[in-house]
Design a protein around this nucleic acid. Structure first.
Lengths: 184, 184
DNA sequence: GTCTATACGAAGATAGAC
DNA sequence: GTCTATCTTCGTATAGAC
C-alpha cells in the first residue's frame, strides 16, 4: 500500500497546488473555479469531481496549517500553564510567519468560516490556542485580550513583501508580549 | 431649499437603511442587490438607479462613519502629539463601538478595499490614525504596533450581542493601552 | 425624473456522454 | 476520470413605460 497512485492522484495534487498559489496571491473570493481549472490544466467540472465544492478546495489547501496548529495546541496542553503560554506564543508566531501567504485567505473567510463544517476543527483549535495564550486564567478580559492579540497578528501577516520574516517575527513577538504582559 | 424631497429621497434612504442592516448582519458579499431590493420593496434596477453599482451602496452606508473618522483625525492633527494620541485612542474606540455593526463589512472588504476609489479617503484616514496612535514617532516598529492594535480592535468589534458596549469599550481600551504602552 | 422589464457575462454547481 | 452542456444566481447595463 506504499506504492500508491502513479497517475491516480496527480490531477488532484495539481489542482491543490495551483489553488494554493491563487488563493495566496489573489485571495479566496477573487479566485474562481475556472481560474483554478485553467491553471491546473483541466476543466471546472474536473475540479468539482475531485473536491466537493469550492470550500473543500480551500480545506485541502489549509490542511497542512490545520495539522500544524493542532499539533501545537496538543503539545501545549500537555504542559503547565506558564510553560504552555510561552511555548504557544513562540510557536504560533512561527506558524503565522510560515503560512502567512494563506492568512489572506483566512481573513477573507473569517466572517463566514463557521458556516462550513470543513473548518470546525480549525476554529476550535484557534479557541483553545486563545485560552492557552491567556495563561490558563479564568479572567474573561485576559482571554479576550488574547483573542485581540491573535486578530492583530492575523491582520499583520497579510502583506507579503513588505517585511522580512525576521521583521514580522519581531513585530508579532513584541505585540503579543505587550498585550499579554509577558517579559521577553 | 430647506423644504426638500417629500417623496424624492424616500426610496434612496430606504435602500440605504436596508442595505446597512443586511451588510451588518450578513456581510457585504453575502448580501446581493436582489436581497437589498427586496428588503427595500423595489427592484434591483431601482437600486442601481439610485446608486452607481454595489460599491456605491456600500460607500453610502459607510458615509457617516467616514465623516466621523475624518473629523476625529482632523481634530487630532491640530493637537500636540501626546495629546493627539490620547484623544485619538479614546475617540476611536468610541467610534468603533458605535459603528461596530459595520465593522463586519470593513473586514470583508479590507483585502480589496483599495480597488475602489470610493474608499480612498477612508483608507488614508486610517493610515493617518495609525501614525497619530503611534504618538508621532518615526520608529517603524511603533507604527506597526499601532496598526496591529487597530487590526485587533476591528476583529474584536465583529461579534455583536456577545458583549455590552461597556465591556467592549473596556477591552479595547486595555488592549490599546498595553500595546501602545500608555497609562490609563 | 422614477421606475420596471429584460438581457448579458461570469460565478458555483450538476447531469450525463464518452 | 474527464469532458460538454446546462442550470441558477450573481453584478451590471440598457431600453423604454409612466
Amino acid at each position: 500500500m506504499a506504492t500508491t497512485t502513479p497517475a491516480r492522484e496527480r490531477t488532484r495534487r495539481e489542482i491543490e497546488q495551483q489553488a494554493m498559489a491563487l488563493f495566496g496571491s489573489r485571495g479566496y473570493d477573487a479566485s474562481s473555479l475556472q481560474d483554478i481549472a485553467t491553471a491546473a490544466g483541466c476543466s471546472k467540472a474536473t475540479v468539482l469531481y475531485h473536491f466537493n465544492g469550492k470550500p473543500a478546495v480551500l480545506a485541502a489547501v489549509l490542511e497542512p496549517s490545520r495539522i500544524a496548529l493542532n499539533e501545537l495546541v496538543a503539545a501545549a496542553e500537555e504542559m503547565p500553564a506558564a510553560a504552555a503560554q510561552e511555548f504557544a506564543l513562540t510557536r504560533f508566531i512561527d506558524l503565522a510567519v510560515e503560512f502567512r501567504g494563506l492568512i489572506n485567505v483566512l481573513q477573507d473567510l473569517l466572517g463566514t468560516l463557521d458556516q462550513y463544517p470543513e473548518f470546525a476543527q480549525l476554529i476550535s483549535a484557534g479557541l483553545r490556542l486563545t485560552e492557552i495564550l491567556a495563561g490558563g486564567t479564568d479572567d474573561q478580559l485576559e482571554i479576550d485580550l488574547a483573542k485581540f492579540a491573535i486578530n492583530g497578528l492575523l491582520g499583520e501577516c497579510r502583506h507579503p513583501g513588505e517585511r522580512s520574516d525576521a521583521e514580522l517575527h519581531t513585530l508579532c513577538d513584541t505585540a503579543l508580549r505587550r498585550i499579554l504582559r509577558l517579559n521577553p
